[in-house]
Design a binder for these strands. Structure first.
Lengths: 245, 245
DNA sequence: GCAATAGTGTCTCTCAGACATTATGGT
DNA sequence: ACCATAATGTCTGAGAGACACTATTGC
């Protein structure tokens, strides 16, 4: 029988084979009304030329979450992030052909950025539409397609019962703007998510608070009022997600 | 700037400091109407004599989930488990005073067992009521109190929108039995969770299907009908959890 | 019969969904 | 004026919560 930590308290070197521990980042944003994910192009084997999640090794003196924040800054130039949440850990023995790697995946949600990855050390970095990723475009390295699938589902689910959508907007935003975030993330059109009911739901849930009477600059129709994030952490009852057609 | 995997594809040894990777198990059950968690007593330093989550090292040739199943068998004698779900990963640099350990926590839900840990190699293993653990009784080793807190909340939340409760019952069960599971996990009394409404909700949700007309053996009152788990994976709309008083 | 537990009926209130209507800007 | 978009109002049906009631067992 294998010796275990709890069983004998011993630390036989054979018991703790060394692993590399990495973090993988799922940086989501909304660009031009599309739900997008940041990917980097791999330069070296294996999977050279394939797209992959940004990420890197956890250092000895930092927690996985600290490593995620560091990589977010290094690889995407993102130093401020509202939401950074652990997704799950992926540790299949063969997920990296070279060595034994266990990777902790994190979700980050950022507003639309002017430059996709200004000041990063990952030259070939860009946002890809989630709709395409769900169709396998582009193909991803390692087991990143699995991680991405899980991350997309988590993001969609959290939109139902948390004020997460506001993280995709700036500091101030309109309710129609928030509405378009929901439609983009869930991949539904305006018919499936009624604008009037959405407005009422958002206003009564405490998810938003008015931002000092101001309104959004000129568009083609009536200017929308501006709001900020409310204090609530859960939306209760949740905003129901329409079934995808 | 730190070299990263994605940035250059290089594998400088300085980039991947070796970590030990372990799994921690949160094995929940219902005993005598109480929501309980399996703990083992530590025999060695650090934290000798303290109670801790069962767990152990991930071996080179197995995934963390495989390791969780193996430890479940070795430390608790549990070879069949309906639900084994990853909770989260804990990797603070100082969570273990001896070495750098990253631990993946798993949740398991088992029916009440005749022997708490028959045929295990962890002699001092027993189930502890969750109600006490929430009051800090007993004190736990490492950061296990944090892990336990997260696990309890996850279990309570999953009861709302999944058929998880059935995993605490045997193959066949009664609706009043399921009702008592909900009350035990949520820590609410019969007043807070109406039995009549619960019955209706469970029957109409598809969570259970009748088990061939049979009824439970003689109790003090009217015998209850027996049911099995339904096919559904999500309960929709969810069973609402009463606010704890 | 009575106690105890299982199960049904019914009412009300909240809320999501559908959709009509009004408000306010640009051109 | 007209169009486009924002916001409100109104009706309806599903369903949760409260609670009265009936059913089936053991004693």
């Amino acid at each position: 029988m294998t010796r275990t930590r709890s069983g004998n308290g011993g630390y036989d070197p054979a018991d703790y084979p060394p692993f590399a521990v990495t973090v993988d980042l799922l940086v989501f944003t909304i660009r031009d009304g599309e739900f997008c994910l940041l990917l980097v192009e791999r330069g070296a084997e294996p999977y050279a030329g394939r797209w992959a999640l940004p990420g890197g090794f956890v250092q000895v003196d930092e927690s996985p979450e600290d490593a995620a924040r560091r990589e977010l800054a290094e690889e995407a130039g993102i130093t401020e992030v509202d939401v950074l949440e652990q997704l799950a850990t992926y540790g299949d023995p063969n997920r990296d052909p070279r060595m034994r790697v266990v990777s902790v995946a994190y979700l980050a949600f950022v507003p639309d950025l002017p430059e996709p990855s200004a000041g990063t050390d990952a030259a070939g970095a860009r946002f890809w539409p989630v709709a395409g990723l769900e169709q396998g475009e582009p193909a991803l390295a390692f087991d990143h397609a699995d991680i991405v699938r899980d991350g997309i589902e988590r993001a969609r689910a959290k939109l139902e019962y948390t004020p997460l959508a506001a993280a995709f907007c700036g500091d101030e935003f309109t309710i129609p703007g928030l509405w378009s975030v929901y439609r983009a993330v869930w991949g539904v059109d305006a018919d499936a998510l009624d604008q009037a009911n959405f407005q009422r739901k958002v206003l009564t849930s405490g998810m938003v608070v008015p931002a000092d009477g101001s309104r959004q600059g000129p568009g083609r129709g009536r200017p929308a009022r501006l709001f900020r994030r409310g204090e609530i952490e859960v939306v209760h009852p949740p905003i129901r997600r329409p079934a995808p057609p």
